[in-house]
Structures are given as structure tokens and as C-alpha cells.
């Protein structure tokens, strides 16, 4: 299967005197979930609108499989904007069919697909209801369906989990992972770092119109790993304080988080030292959360400028 690829090269966008995007570049491959993260006003929505061809970049180019974005039909792209909107007086199924046909689906195909997705998200009973009679969460689901009804090759979702209950979050994640398996491109923007962490393979963090972090999630995590461990035991572990080369960061009842200073002790030495002294329940390498990395980087960069 050939790999789809979306490239954003040195894209710059101005709104009159305001530079909202400054020479932004990234690359997304098919089968990859790409997380476009950043604080409010970082330029995420503008970037997504440019990928959707709603706005044109002032400089740079956006390529899909090597072809300029504005030469490609919109039906290859699906979009869930951050600000949700539907026709309040329209009937659910009719509106979904309308959106489907706008992306070149036949009416029949659009109807079948719409019903299929509504069934998966548990709302097939509402197909003949008016939008304004639905709850916020249900409207959100309808909007999601509208975004991927036509099975686009590139799917851009802005805050897809906002307003969904945990069960529907799982249903959505299932749909998205199926989608990923088809080697398609998925771009997600969110403020919920836990969601991004669970879902994304590739992260791009932008702040003040620039990329401040770009890479595979696993690599990023490795890079920001603090060499920290956590241990939990059934008996007291106060003796850890006496072992040389251990810095205790956090300590609770029979559990603690610590780092090893490289010069004095290695992890295997550490195990030798505690052997027989502790009834261990859990031991793990502490990964830095994306949340922490995000805050740290954004604060650092904002302080610099």
C-alpha cells in the first residue's frame, strides 16, 4: 500500500499586521495520528483552515502526496471545526446526506453511510429528529459523522472529544483507529493532553506561530525522561533514604518517586541493594506526561520571547 503524505513547508500566514503562522513545517504520514497542539491563539485553527483550503497561505506550500493542496478536491479531506455548528431546524439524516453529497457521495451512499455511523454511535433512532431537539453531546456526534461520512483521506478534528461521555469517547476512538488502519492521515488538535497522549503517534507543538516541538511521541517522551522511577511496597521503605545516589522526589506511605544520580549508582546496583529488604508491589519507570512537557516548553518559550 502506498503511503499518503501531507507536507507543510515553510508556511506563513498574516492577518493584516498579525503574523499568525511563521514558517511552519511538518510532515504527516498515512496511518499516523498527528497531534497539533498548542495554547490558545497559537495558530492551530488557522493552520487547519489552510490544510482545508479555507484559507490560503501567504508563503510556503501545503502538499498532499506531492500535489499542491489547492489543486486537490476537497472531498479527500474531512474537517471537524472547533466551533460546532449545524442547521438547527434541519432533520439529522437529511442534513448528513446533504453534507455527504457535497463531497460527491451519491444520495443513497450518503444515506447508508450516515445510518451506519449513527448506529455505531448509538443514535440511529434520532435520524428523523430536528437538530435543535438533540442534546449538545448528540449534536457533537452528528458533527463528527459529518466530518468522516465521505471517508476522506485526510481527517482533521479540532477537539473531537470535547463534550463526549466516556462511552462515546471509546466509540469514537474505535472509529478513528479503524480509520488509521486504512493508512489514512489523521490530524487532531486538542487541549486535552491525556487524549493526545492516548491517541497520537506524532506530536507537533506550536506556540506563538512557531513549531517548538515536533516528533514521534515515544521519542519525545524519551527525550524528556527525567531518569525517574517509582516504587510501591507492602512494608516500609524508609531505608531508601540511606542508599547513596538516590534522590527522593516524592514520598507517600510505602511508596516513593526517586531519581538515580548516574555517577554513583545504576539501576541494577539499586536492585541488589534492596534485595530481600522490600516486599515490592510495583516498580516502574516514570515517563514525563505530555501535559508536563507542554507546560514546560510553552512557559520556557514564552519567557524567552
Amino acid at each position: 500500500m502506498e503511503t499518503n503524505i501531507l507536507e507543510v513547508n515553510q508556511v506563513t500566514k498574516w492577518f493584516f499586521e498579525n503574523q499568525v503562522i511563521n514558517k511552519l513545517s511538518f510532515k504527516v504520514k498515512g496511518g499516523e495520528t498527528f497531534g497539533l497542539l498548542g495554547p490558545n491563539g497559537a495558530g492551530k485553527t488557522t493552520m487547519m483552515r489552510m490544510i482545508m483550503n479555507i484559507l490560503q497561505p501567504d508563503e510556503g506550500e501545503i502538499l498532499y502526496n506531492g500535489i499542491a493542496r489547492n489543486k486537490i478536491k476537497s472531498l479527500h479531506f474531512g474537517y471537524l471545526p472547533e466551533e460546532r455548528g449545524l442547521y438547527p431546524r434541519a432533520y439529522v439524516l437529511e442534513m448528513l446526506i446533504y453534507f455527504g453529497t457535497l463531497n460527491n457521495l451519491s444520495r443513497r451512499k450518503a444515506e447508508v453511510e450516515a445510518i451506519r455511523y449513527m448506529d455505531r454511535l448509538g443514535m440511529v433512532d434520532f435520524s428523523d429528529t430536528r437538530i435543535n431537539a438533540l442534546s449538545k453531546g448528540m449534536q457533537q456526534k452528528i458533527q463528527l459523522i459529518a466530518a468522516f461520512l465521505h471517508n476522506p483521506d485526510v481527517l482533521i478534528l479540532d477537539e473531537p472529544f470535547a463534550g463526549l461521555d466516556p462511552i462515546n469517547q471509546i466509540a469514537l476512538r474505535d472509529i478513528l483507529s479503524e480509520y488509521k488502519k486504512e493508512n489514512k492521515i489523521l490530524i487532531i488538535s486538542t487541549h486535552q493532553m491525556e487524549q493526545a497522549e492516548k491517541l497520537c503517534d506524532h506530536i507537533c507543538l506550536i506556540n506563538q506561530a512557531k513549531v517548538i516541538l515536533d516528533g514521534k511521541l515515544s521519542q519525545i517522551k524519551k527525550k524528556y525522561r527525567e531518569n525517574a522511577y517509582s516504587i510501591e511496597a507492602d512494608n516500609s521503605i524508609a531505608f531508601l533514604h540511606d542508599i547513596k545516589g538516590i534522590n527522593i522526589v516524592e514520598e507517600n506511605n510505602n511508596s516513593c518517586k526517586f531519581t538515580l544520580s548516574h555517577d554513583n549508582i545504576s539501576i541494577s546496583k539499586f536492585f541488589e541493594q534492596i534485595k530481600g529488604r522490600v516486599k515490592m508491589r510495583k516498580f516502574e519507570i516514570v515517563e514525563p506526561s505530555l501535559h508536563d512537557i507542554f507546560i514546560k516548553l510553552v512557559q520556557e518559550q514564552t519567557a524567552k520571547s
Binding site: 482545508m52 479555507i54 471545526p81 455548528g85 449545524l86 442547521y87 438547527p88 457535497l102 458533527q143
Partner: peptide, 15 residues
């Protein structure tokens, strides 16, 4: 209406 409820953004992404 489309401007105020932001349907326009969805529409603009299709047409």
C-alpha cells in the same frame, strides 16, 4: 445563520 452558528466553516471546507 451559517455565520453565527459556524456551519459556514464546514461548508467552506467542502465547497
Amino acid at each position: 445563520l451559517e455565520k453565527s452558528n459556524r456551519v459556514i466553516e464546514v461548508l467552506l471546507s467542502y465547497a
